[in-house]
Amino acid sequence: MTPVPLIEYRDIARRFTTRRGTVTACEHVDLTVNEGEFLAIVGPSGCGKSTLLNMAAGLLQPSAGGVFYRGEKVPEPNTRVGYMTQRDTLLPWRSVEDNVAIALELRGQDRPTRLRTAHEWLHRVGLKGFENAYPAQLSGGMRRRVSMARTLAYEPETILMDEPFGALDAQLRLVMHDELLKLWAATRTTMVFVTHDLTEAITLADRVAVFSARPGRIRAIETVDLPRPRDVFRIRFDPRFGELHDRLWGYLEESVREGVMV
């Protein structure tokens, strides 16, 4: 099966102008995301990983180079991608079910139909019984589940995730990884997952791209040869996992030592 390129970054750079001068978030980035794959981007914080996602979403334009979606320049905004950001973007004045159903609502689906879909997804992420709660009444982990359900419920062609579980504790993250992989296995949506956690990246992804510290460049891209379905709770102890982890950590370590932007 030949991979079909879906998102292509062609020699892109992004610079931001601040009061203290120009900051280069990333430069000379060439990266292709293939249809149906789970790609993880790992790098130290502040290396411009999120910038890449924002560009794929059409929320940000590259300063140089081009970003393409299915061979065409990414539209502003790119409505074919779903975006799950690091911060909560649930609408606090909407109940959980109305949050999950919002994309369907925007598409003009009638309320009973869209709520049925929303309930199905809430059930899948283990939030049955919380349909009428407001986001402020939920724990951080539960809010993440709602965000996940909201992103998956309208079935976007590609899903971008920016450190979606960064704020959760280690055990809860494993649980979320398990759920995410199960949900993903059913849909095989193209995934671009940004994280600073190498273990998380290897656990989830088909391919891992390692980013250097700012200005971000790609240091290495490796294929994760671990069979699916994966047991996220145990896969860390697989020797192949350890090998890959060591190799990728080699690239990442340099970047981290070079100085992480605080």
């Binding site: 979403a57 929320l59 905004p77 779903g82 973007t89 609408l91 919002i102 994309a103 925007l106």
Partner: peptide, 10 residues
């Protein structure tokens, strides 16, 4: 961010 998420949803 809230506005952007909705824009992406079309």
């Amino acid at each position: 961010e809230l506005v952007d998420v909705l824009r992406l949803m079309g």
